[in-house]
Design a protein around this nucleic acid. Structure first.
Length: 544
RNA sequence: UCCCCGAUAGCUCAAUGGUAGAGCGAGCGGCUGUUAACCGCUAGGUUCCAGGUUCGAGUCCUGGUCGGGGAGCCA
């Protein structure tokens, strides 16, 4: 049963040179194809489509799934071709149902798209050489009522339309492929870290520290919104300004009830204000400073009212954190990580990636191979600014926004660096302190000849997408950290446990964040973040 | 949040202010080891909502709702 499983059949042309080869001089890890040998049967005992496609002629199988298309022929007394998919791979399997089947006229001949069926039969070859099933029985498990109005039809649909039927869109080619690649990417990510001795840490979803400082937060509360407990404003709590900055405006009040009054959160579930996390980083740092190499992977929430093809209110983020490590080690880890993920998906989901390459983004696989084969160019922010200013001055590039040291780069700038100037992934490092977070390690004065203070931050930029990873070396010196917290007007006492890490056995450490959906867009070529997550949450969108 | 664009059959889209159309899909029939099938016939409409202008509004005006693209923020 081993030879010619569906996976290895379809994948060969796509994976040339990657399996078993080294990735940019890095050791190859065990990114094996997902084909199981011998072809697996699912726990319940029937055959998945991916196995049936690789099964030997004569094998008796039962497959279960959903009809993609039905075509009829009068040949040989009449028969129907049923393309059946069950999600196990990109390709459906074809079943031949002859008119001699007892339920042919009243059932088989009336099957429409996405009817659920079970088919018993024997594997045979089509005239063109692929596997198909000569059906001995076709059992209809679930009909599709009113086929004319069924939302998914055997024809191209726009992604915008399919978002409105997100519960059914996964039955289509594109969203099935997205789902499988998303799974493969998740598994590859865990495998990458596991193989390197990293520990997976489940950081909390709910946080009662309002100091994570990475954007607007969703409030978590069990208080009665129609009857909020109030207390006199004793002015000892966080200032209004602080609450506004760290709170959930504009979606909830900043905690001020009326003149001289504010909400009494001591009566709330956690005895204090609580929110959904915007990052697991601060928590995972604590585990890093005990287990050395750790990562967290979980949902992350931002209450920003941003409505773009790249933002979600709920998204997944991977955040590794490494101890006894500096920014250079961090950048190396990020580069290895990105390349590992690309290699794994190209190898394991060659069928789906072929589809993305042909139908979603022409040249996608070539683009990914280029990233796989290119060293990531390390470049100080200060030098990047120089390159961009020179390019603008000489007319080589035209930017809508001017480039200025001390300001964040626009995406047009980032994309010029990675797509035009270097034509390879770029790791920009050492950003101006003034535009980065409080926990980033301050560099010695004069680093890179910068005109102002910088911190050991990094952004990984890749062609087509722009920034895909953001990270930094963390400030491990308590005195420096305290000054920084004070400078940014943050409440020192809220950081007591974070500061403790710097008091008790502090070590240099670093980490980064990779937006999982951004990585999905990068790898699949899908252009809207809402199409790479099963049920997207965005302002005004939480239907499913 | 800002700037553009859009909303007509199940879907994608047409329709000078003058009878609501096509392709695909669906149903029926024909042909066919078919596989983006092909050919014929049939059904399918509160033109997003509420006002307004007009003899007459899918079309023009006002307001709203929803959607898309771009920007900002970021992941």
């Amino acid at each position: 049963m081993a030879p010619g499983t569906h996976g290895s059949r379809a994948k060969r042309p796509m994976t040339r040179g990657t399996r078993g080869a080294s990735v940019h001089g890095l050791p190859t890890h065990t990114a094996r194809p997902l084909t199981i040998d011998p072809p697996r049967r699912c726990a319940m005992g029937w055959t998945r489509v991916v196995e049936a496609l690789g099964a030997p002629v004569g094998a008796e199988v039962t497959v279960k799934g959903w009809v993609r298309t039905r075509r009829d022929s009068k040949a040989g007394g009449g028969l129907s071709f049923i393309a059946l998919h069950d999600g196990s791979c990109f390709e459906p399997i074809q079943a031949v149902a002859q008119a001699t089947l007892p339920n042919y006229a009243d059932q088989v001949a009336r099957l429409t798209t996405h009817c659920a069926v079970e088919i018993d039969g024997v594997i045979q070859r089509t005239p063109k050489g692929g596997n198909e099933i000569l059906a001995s029985a076709v059992r209809v498990v679930g009909w599709v009522e009113d086929p004319d109005h069924y939302p998914i039809q055997p024809k191209p649909h726009s992604f915008e339309y399919l978002r409105q039927v997100a519960h059914l869109r996964v039955r289509t080619n594109t969203f099935g492929a997205v789902a499988r690649v998303r799974h493969a990417l998740s598994m590859a990510m865990h495998r990458f870290f596991h193989e390197r001795g990293f520990f997976y840490v489940h950081t909390p979803i709910i946080t009662a520290s309002d100091c994570e400082g990475a954007g607007q937060m969703f409030r978590v509360s069990t208080l009665d919104l129609l009857n909020l407990p109030r207390k006199k404003d004793d002015m000892t709590g966080p200032t209004d300004a602080g609450l506004i900055n760290a709170g959930s405006a504009p979606f909830t009040s900043p905690g001020v009830a009326a003149e001289g009054e504010r909400i009494d959160f001591s009566q709330d579930f956690f005895g204090k204000e609580a929110h959904l996390t915007v990052s697991g980083q601060l928590n995972v740092e604590t585990y890093c400073c005990a287990l050395t190499n750790v990562y967290t992977f979980g949902p992350t929430f931002r209450a920003e009212n941003s409505n773009t093809s790249r933002h979600l209110a709920e998204f997944w983020m991977i955040e590794p954190e490494i101890a006894f490590a500096d920014l250079a080690a961090n950048a190396t880890l990020a580069e290895e990580f990105v390349k590992y993920l690309i290699n794994a998906v190209l190898t394991e989901r060659a069928d789906d990636m072929k589809f993305f390459d042909e139908r979603i983004e022409k040249g996608l696989v070539e683009r990914l191979r280029h990233v796989l084969d290119s060293p990531f160019r390390r470049l100080p922010y200060t030098e990047g600014v120089k390159i961009l200013r020179d390019a603008a001055a000489s007319g080589k590039a035209r930017f809508e926004f001017p480039v200025e040291w001390g300001k964040d780069l626009q995406s047009e700038h980032e994309r010029y660096l990675t797509e035009e100037h270097f034509k390879q992934p770029v790791v920009l490092i050492n950003y101006p302190k003034q535009i980065k977070a409080f926990y980033m390690r301050e560099n010695p004065p004069g680093t890179d000849g910068a005109p102002g203070p910088t911190v050991a931050a990094m952004d990984v930029l890749v062609p087509k997408i722009g920034e895909i990873i953001g990270g930094s070396q963390r400030e491990e010196r308590l005195d420096v950290l305290d000054v920084r917290i004070a400078e940014m007007g943050l409440p020192l006492q809220e950081y007591w446990w974070y500061r403790d890490l710097r008091r008790y056995g502090t070590v240099p450490h670093a980490g980064f964040g990779l937006g999982f959906e951004r990585a999905m867009m990068f790898i699949t070529g899908m252009q809207n973040v809402r199409d790479v997550i099963p049920f997207p949450r965005a302002p005004g969108q939480a239907e499913f």
